[in-house]
Simulated scan of single mutants.
Amino acid sequence: MMLAADIGGQIDFSPERRFHGTQHAVLLGGANLLIVGTRTGSNIGLYDFGAIARRHAMDLLVARFSGPVAAYDIYRCKDDQWFTGYQRAWFKDRFWLCPPDDVDQPFILAHRRGLQFSSHAPFPDARRFEAGLSLAAQTSTQWQEAA
């Protein structure tokens, strides 16, 4: 739910009332983005998650949590394509999903109107990129402790 709040927009906490198969998910209505969280390992459940998103013509963001580390898988419905192993970062008050270093995949801006894909990094240099990843990885408790 915090992930949906970070992205912004109108949040539907019970999309299963209108969209079959979306239990345990939240929907960002203006973005047509379904968000689910799981503790399963990478690439597990992609077919099942993708089938639900495809059925309802929605993009999908899967947050995978393993202890304090999170990875993100993104399904782009219009292309029927998965982008996996992403990390999140903040840059200029925007929420970005960044591909793994060794993969030539797009950077993704997540905001209240949807996902925007870019072939260019939003960061001017590697140092600012690492700082953005570091800031995005902080929990609210860590932010409070730092303050």
Rank of each mutant, 00 (worst) to 15 (best):
G50W: 04
G50V: 07
A51W: 03
I52Y: 03
A53Q: 03
A53C: 07
M58C: 07
D59Y: 03
L60R: 01
V62M: 02
V62H: 04
V62N: 01
A63G: 08
A63W: 03
A63L: 10
R64N: 05
S66L: 11
S66E: 13
G67Q: 09
P68Q: 11
P68K: 13
V69W: 06
V69H: 10
A71K: 10
A71I: 05
D73R: 07
Y75H: 08
R76K: 13
C77I: 03
C77Y: 09
C77K: 06
C77P: 02
K78S: 15
K78H: 11
D79W: 07
D79Q: 15
D80A: 15
Q81H: 11
Q81M: 14
Q81W: 04
W82G: 09
F83V: 06
F83Q: 00
F83E: 00
Y86E: 02
Y86I: 03
Q87I: 04
Q87H: 13
W90E: 02
W90Q: 01
W90H: 11
F91L: 06
K92D: 13
D93H: 11
D93Q: 14
R94L: 08
R94H: 11
F95R: 06
W96H: 04
L97P: 00
C98P: 00
C98K: 02
P99I: 05
P99E: 03
P100V: 08
P100A: 11
D101S: 15
D101L: 14
V103I: 14
D104G: 07
D104A: 15
D104W: 05
Q105D: 14
Q105P: 00
F107R: 02
F107L: 04
L109W: 05
L109S: 08
R112H: 14
R112A: 15
G114C: 05
Q116N: 13
Q116D: 13
S118E: 09
S118N: 13
S118V: 06
H120R: 12
H120K: 13
A121M: 08
A121Q: 08
P122K: 08
D125F: 09
A126R: 14
R128W: 03
R128Y: 03
